[in-house]
Amino acid sequence: MKIQEKLREIARKLLAGGEAGVVIGYAAGSEVSRVVPAFISREEDVDRLVWNPLCINNLVKYLLDYRHEPGKVAVVVKGCDSRAIVRLLQDNQISREQVIILGISCPGLINPDLVAARLDPEAQIKAVTTSEQDFSLQTEREIFTFTRDEALLEKCRYCEHHTPVISDFIIGEEIPPTTPLDPFTAVKALEELPVEARSAYWDKQFSRCLRCYACRNVCPACTCRECIFDQAEPCWVTKANNLSENMAFHLIRAFHVAGRCVDCGECDRVCPVNIPLSLLNRKILKDVKELFNVPTPGTSLEELPALGIFTNSDPDEFM
């Protein structure tokens, strides 16, 4: 809970001194396994801020809502989320001066379904300890321990940046990069399949897409003023929900974020019908990395998106 206290302390100072107009962080949700994005602008509300292993949402995209507001905005980011800050900075969507980055050294998050399965939904988390082996959540009555093996959130198993890559404050002890699992295992397995099988796999996934656009709306690389999928004229993709239009949507979107996707995993999380969008985006991420020998997009401000720049050494075997 040290991180939570420290976070509140910094937020309080920022708001009291007028340095930030709002702090975007996490607050307790409607049940123990959920948190909600919280927008704290008054000192007396600072104690609503929480930090625990259920803080999965990437809050960075909310910065766009404050683009035209005066004053600075403070935002809580984990390592993975911090790459999204770099994304928005590189795309000139936000200015560095307007943002105060409250970086949290994140040891990994917990799968909320397991928490929901074991804890009373009305319970409140009073304290959290994480070790190399497990997470312990302490409620008013009990301590619930989950081993990392069983409970570590899938995306955290591939974590590249526990400590944010860009920040004004680092809260919690810096966690050096560990050796994660290979993020491309699933991509490679799919690549092994014959083309018909790959095609059938994606057909099945895309055919159940509802076209709710949650993946787009949550994505920190989706910042177009008017998305082509909302445009009536010209109509690139009709509103009809069928495999052809759904596939057009997903492939256009995947290519649009190619080389810019920061692999934060939010699209996977929000999809109501569990389409493995990360798998699609990671395939492109893998290709971009291999072709251009670049790190994961958003890793550093200096490293511009591979497909956003041109150098003479770019591969051109398709020419």
Binding site: F39, L210, Y213, A214, N217, V218, V270
Partner: peptide, 13 residues
Amino acid sequence: ARRCLGCGICTYI
């Protein structure tokens, strides 16, 4: 509304 993503999940399901 401040936290709403403006997606269509709730309405479509």
